[in-house]
Amino acid sequence: MRATVIGGKNYLFAGSHESAKRIAMLYSLIGTCKLHNINPSLWLKDVLMVINDHPVNRIKELLPHIWITKQK
Score class of each variant (00 low, 15 high):
43 W>F: 05
40 P>G: 09
31 G>N: 07
18 E>A: 12
13 F>N: 10
22 R>M: 04
44 L>C: 06
15 G>V: 04
36 H>M: 10
20 A>C: 04
37 N>Q: 15
42 L>K: 13
33 C>T: 03
43 W>G: 02
23 I>V: 06
44 L>K: 08
38 I>V: 08
22 R>T: 00
36 H>G: 06
30 I>F: 13
41 S>L: 14
43 W>M: 08
26 L>E: 12
38 I>N: 07
42 L>M: 11
35 L>T: 07
19 S>W: 01
17 H>Q: 10
35 L>Y: 14
34 K>N: 12
34 K>L: 15
30 I>G: 02
24 A>I: 00
21 K>Y: 07
28 S>W: 02
27 Y>Q: 13
29 L>C: 05
22 R>Q: 10
40 P>L: 09
29 L>T: 01
27 Y>A: 11
28 S>E: 11
13 F>C: 08
36 H>T: 06
23 I>H: 06
14 A>S: 13
42 L>H: 10
42 L>F: 07
34 K>D: 12
21 K>C: 10
17 H>E: 14
30 I>L: 11
13 F>A: 10
31 G>R: 03
11 Y>L: 15
33 C>D: 09
42 L>T: 07
10 N>Q: 13
13 F>V: 05
34 K>Y: 10
20 A>V: 01
23 I>L: 13
14 A>T: 00
24 A>H: 02
44 L>S: 12
18 E>Y: 01
37 N>A: 14
42 L>W: 09
36 H>N: 15
10 N>C: 12
15 G>F: 03
36 H>F: 15
16 S>A: 06
10 N>Y: 08
10 N>M: 15
32 T>M: 13
44 L>M: 09
30 I>Q: 09
32 T>W: 03
16 S>N: 03
20 A>E: 03
37 N>E: 12
22 R>G: 00
17 H>C: 04
25 M>P: 00
27 Y>S: 07
15 G>C: 05
20 A>Y: 02
29 L>I: 02
36 H>W: 14
24 A>K: 06
17 H>R: 15
18 E>L: 05
18 E>Q: 09
22 R>D: 01
35 L>P: 00
33 C>Y: 04
14 A>M: 04
36 H>L: 06
30 I>P: 00
35 L>C: 09
40 P>D: 10
28 S>K: 13
17 H>T: 09
41 S>Q: 14
36 H>I: 04
12 L>A: 03
41 S>C: 08
27 Y>H: 11
29 L>G: 02
44 L>D: 09
37 N>V: 07
13 F>L: 12
24 A>S: 11
17 H>N: 07
15 G>H: 03
33 C>P: 04
36 H>Q: 13
24 A>P: 00
36 H>E: 14
31 G>F: 04
41 S>N: 08
27 Y>I: 01
11 Y>Q: 05
33 C>I: 03
13 F>E: 11
25 M>I: 05
30 I>Y: 07
33 C>W: 05
36 H>R: 12
33 C>G: 05
17 H>A: 14
20 A>P: 01
18 E>D: 10
31 G>H: 02
